[in-house]
């Protein structure tokens, strides 16, 4: 770990000022990912700006009936908040599918959005990695890529975003509130993370000096028909090979509205409006779910070790939609995939 300066931001404006003053500075809240990366010398911030005491811990209802969640709300608090449990159980479920209780207690909502890929080459400073050291090459493309992306990859990076929470937020159509040197702005969560293209060192569209202040959940929470299904190499405490956030609004067996997002398959939560549109007006049947999965997975590309993910994702989408349709969401506490 490198030496670094430490500053505590007194308010959001102060955090923005401190960021602007030091291009090598990083914000720290829970630190559950950043500290690990610093220990591995992957992140070498010149300064840590501690924002953990800023007043961004509220969960409040918005005028239109949605919820605004402060960027520093711990993941655990969010998952177990009564309004989240009642109105956005898909989000609660996705959060509880990730990490461990200890990590969720520390990790903040904003930090969760900012967590970096778990690509082994990214973590190992002795190997080339375009994300860590731009221009050095991607070791995963022709290397060990069993856990890597099948969608939205580029010739310079095939890393995945590891977040579970973001997958649910993408499906729910959440917004990200950002403050920065030029004021405040709001972007869709699906536009927050970016594809690697030729700049894989950039995970998000957050500008320099910008800070996440909140996420906003739209009024529709799909609380009746949803499921978050995470498929991994052991039943708990592992990153997703494939995960699915599925949400339906049904009238009888007819689909009025559908939301579908994949995790573990791309550089960002993977959502396809085309796939969701194809479900609208259809009956909630495995066949229709399969066709939506095919649309969602259009363009999926297999590398040497991750080809299985395409079929696995297809099957997981169908299963998650079936769980959602039957209002029997996947439990994150049972030692079984339902």
């Amino acid at each position: 770990m490198n030496n670094f300066q430490y500053s505590r931001a007194s308010d959001v404006a102060d955090a923005i000022r401190l960021l602007a003053a030091d291009p090598g500075a990083k914000l720290i809240a829970g630190g559950t990912n950043l500290i690990d990366l610093m220990k591995e010398n992957v992140e070498r911030p010149s300064r840590l700006i501690d924002i953990s005491r800023l007043p961004l811990r509220d969960i409040e209802e918005t005028a239109d009936g949605g919820l605004r969640v402060g960027a520093l709300v711990p993941n655990s608090d969010l998952a177990y908040h009564p309004l989240i449990e009642q109105r956005y159980p898909l989000l609660a479920s996705a959060i509880l599918a990730g990490a461990s209780a200890q990590l969720r207690n520390m990790a903040s909502v904003g930090g969760n959005l900012m967590q970096r890929t778990r690509c082994a080459y990214f973590y190992d400073t002795a190997t080339p990695c375009n994300k860590r050291s731009p221009g050095t090459g991607c070791s995963a493309i022709d290397g060990l890529n069993r856990n890597h992306a099948i969608l939205g990859t580029s010739t310079s990076c095939i890393a995945t975003n590891p977040s579970d929470m973001s997958v649910a937020l993408a499906a729910l159509g959440a917004l990200v509130h950002i403050a920065g040197p030029s004021g405040q702005r709001t972007i869709a969560l699906t536009d927050f993370h970016r594809l690697p293209e030729d700049k894989p060192h950039l995970d998000t569209n957050l500008g320099s000096g910008e800070i996440i202040t909140a996420i906003e959940l739209p009024p529709h929470g799909f609380a009746r028909n949803y499921s978050y299904l995470k498929i991994r190499d052991r039943l708990s405490y592992a990153f997703a090979l494939v995960s699915v956030a599925a949400a339906l609004e049904l009238e009888g067996n007819a689909i009025v509205e559908a939301r579908l997002a994949l995790g573990g398959v791309a550089h960002k939560p993977w959502r396809s409006l085309e796939a969701e549109a194809a479900l609208r007006g259809q009956a909630a049947t495995p066949d229709h779910f399969g066709r939506a999965a095919d649309l969602l997975l259009q363009g999926a590309t297999a590398r040497s070790h991750n080809g299985f993910k395409i079929e696995l994702a297809r099957r997981a989408v169908v299963r998650a939609l079936m769980q959602a349709a039957s209002a029997t969401p996947q439990s994150q506490a049972h030692k079984k995939i339902a």
Binding site: R118, A120, Y121, D124, A126, T127, S139, D142, G143, L144, D233, R234, L235, S236, Y237, A238, K335
Partner: peptide
């Protein structure tokens, strides 16, 4: 990774052992 002769999952997050579940 035999191109580097390096172990690529040298930690207990990625080297999987059974958990309670």
């Amino acid at each position: 990774d035999h191109r580097f002769g390096r172990i690529m999952n040298a930690n207990i997050a990625e080297y999987h052992i059974p958990v309670n579940a």
